[in-house]
Structure formats: C-alpha cells, structure tokens
C-alpha cells in the first residue's frame, strides 16, 4: 500500500498494525540494499537494526519534519542503526587508550621525491601541527581526535570514555577548531593547509 507522509505518521502514531508491518517490510528490503556490499552484516544484524530503527522511529515521529519522503527518513535511521552496530562490533576489542597513546605525528617527513622547498614547507607545517596538538589540546581531545584518525568509531570512543557520540563529536570539533586557530596564528590559512600533502 502506498501512503503519503501524513498517512504514515498518523497511522504509526496510532500504532496501526498494517502500517507498522509495512514499515518493517520496507526497512528490511532497504537495509538489504544498503548493506549488500557488507558481508559482515548478516541477517541477525539486519533484523536487530530494523527492530532498533522501528522503536526509534515510533518514538520520534514528532521529529519527522516532512521535508523528505517518510520512507527515506526511516531508511536513514535504519542505516544509522545497522552501520553503528557493524562499527561497534569491529572495534569493541580495541583499547582507546592504547590506540591513542601509540598514535603520534612523525618527527620527520621521509619523501625523497619532494622538491627541497616543498619538503621544508611540509616539515614546518608538520612541526607546527605537532606543537599545536601538544600545547592546545586537552588529554581527552587528543585521545578522541587521534583515535578517530585511526578509524575508531565515535560510538566506540564514547563507550570507552563513558560518554555519548554527540559529546565525542563536540570534543573533536573543539579540538579541530583549536588546531585551526593555532595554525592560523602560525601563518597557515585553511587554504595553505588543505592542499598541503605531507606524503
């Protein structure tokens, strides 16, 4: 059955069983499409994600603003749940402290192919960045930023910090702002930094 946005919301708000069943069926199909290239996303994970997504959607119908198709909004939530589960599963045995304590900037760039001027510029930028990380960031900001660079998901960083994903995002956002300001004070604009490749 095809429903418009208002009908979806009204029927789900009333916990209309056929609407809930249709939503579940649509999410199962859409998640299968979304996860087709991810063999680790087995049927059990997809079923869990759909269930989690259904609960969240039913709980937050008021947050649907109606500026997209309802099923697109619902699918975005199901994908968020499924990929979050996949990431947590992949990283749950990795220690945040360990990964962050081992991650650091190299002292020198080893790139024999680079022109001397380029190499000097890149080395100076690297030094400024290392100094900014050392002097500007709190321990938690440094830990979260470096772990994220190593690929650890924010959900897992949050779990190990006893925090939540939004708080971790704020932590790393504040860290990036501090580093940006410090590099700007050292004479590096965003345009100077963006295209510069250390590699």
């Amino acid at each position: 059955m095809i429903r418009d946005n208002a009908t979806w919301v009204a029927q789900l708000r009333a916990r209309h069983e056929p609407a809930v069943a249709d939503l579940r069926e649509a999410l199962v199909g859409n998640l299968r499409r979304a996860l087709v290239d991810r063999p680790a996303a087995n049927d059990a994970l997809q079923e869990d994600a759909v269930q989690e997504a259904l609960l969240r959607i039913l709980d937050r119908l008021d947050q649907f603003a109606g500026r997209s198709q309802f099923l697109t909004w619902a699918t975005s939530i199901a994908i968020h749940m499924a990929l979050g589960q996949l990431r947590r599963r992949r990283w749950s045995d990795v220690s945040l402290e360990e990964i962050a304590s081992q991650a650091h900037l190299p002292q020198h760039i080893d790139n024999a192919a680079a022109a001397p001027d380029d190499l000097a510029h890149r080395q100076a930028l690297l030094s400024a960045l290392a100094q900014a990380i050392e002097t500007e960031l709190t321990e938690r900001q440094r830990t979260a930023l470096l772990a994220e660079l190593k690929g650890m998901p924010q959900d897992e960083i949050a779990r190990q910090l006893g925090s939540n994903r939004n708080a971790v995002y704020k932590l790393t956002h504040d860290a990036r702002k501090k580093l940006k300001r410090r590099l700007e004070a050292a004479g590096y604009s965003a345009a100077d930094v963006a295209p510069a490749s250390i590699s």
């Binding site: 991650a103 660079l149 580093l179 940006k180 965003a190 930094v193």
Partner: peptide, 26 residues
Amino acid sequence: MPLSPREIDQLLRLIAQTADRELNCE
C-alpha cells in the same frame, strides 16, 4: 605508531574544513 601520511593528510583536511559552528551527528 606514527600517523601514516594518509592519516596526516586527513587531519589537515579536517582542520581546513572545520567551521566554527557545525551540526552534530544527531
């Protein structure tokens, strides 16, 4: 374990693209 060249590039790109006000993930 030093950050790889790719990770350093990623950090520089992130810094360059940082805005004072950003949406959070929610």
